[in-house]
Each structure stands twice: as structure tokens, then as C-alpha cells.
Computed example of a mutant assay.
Amino acid sequence: MRNPMDNWRKSSYSGPGDGNECVEIANSPSHVGVRDTKAPTRATLIFPAEAFTPFIEALKATR
């Protein structure tokens, strides 16, 4: 069985060229993973699914 966290996708805001100026996300029914596009083998943030939207909203509020 395939791990749902192996289904990484880049943001549509990843920038020009190969899009290595952003983050990638992967989600499962219970969690959302976030990693750096430029360093995918480094640390990954894992959020409970219900905490991900408040996390994104907090990031937007700090802009």
C-alpha cells in the first residue's frame, strides 16, 4: 500500500522554471505534510489535518 504522504505536490506559486522557490504539500485523511521544495529530504512539518487551515491563515495574517 502506498503512503499518502508520498504524494507531494508543489504550490501553484512555486515560481518560474522548475519551481524550486516554494514549498510542497502532501496530505492524508488525518495529516498534512509540508516540506521545502529545494530540500525535500530534509525536515518535514506534519500537521493534524484540522490544524493546517489555521496554520495557513496565521501565515497569511503576518504578511
Rank of each mutant, 00 (worst) to 15 (best):
P16L: 15
P48F: 00
S11T: 13
R9Y: 08
E50V: 10
S11Y: 05
P29G: 07
T41E: 15
V23A: 06
K38H: 04
A39W: 01
T37I: 01
F47M: 13
K38R: 12
A58G: 09
V23H: 08
I56M: 14
I46R: 12
V32T: 07
P54F: 06
R35E: 13
K10F: 01
L45D: 10
A58K: 12
A58M: 10
S28L: 11
I56D: 07
T53D: 10
K60H: 11
M5G: 02
F47H: 05
K60F: 01
A26C: 09
I25A: 07
S12C: 10
R63F: 10
H31L: 12
L45P: 01
N27K: 10
S28K: 03
T41V: 01
K60A: 08
P48I: 00
K60L: 07
T37E: 02
P16M: 07
V23K: 04
S30G: 14
G15D: 04
G19D: 10
P54G: 04
G19I: 11
S11G: 09
N3C: 08
S11Q: 11
P48H: 08
P40C: 10
F55A: 13
A58E: 12
C22T: 05
T62N: 03
R35W: 06
A43I: 01
A61I: 04
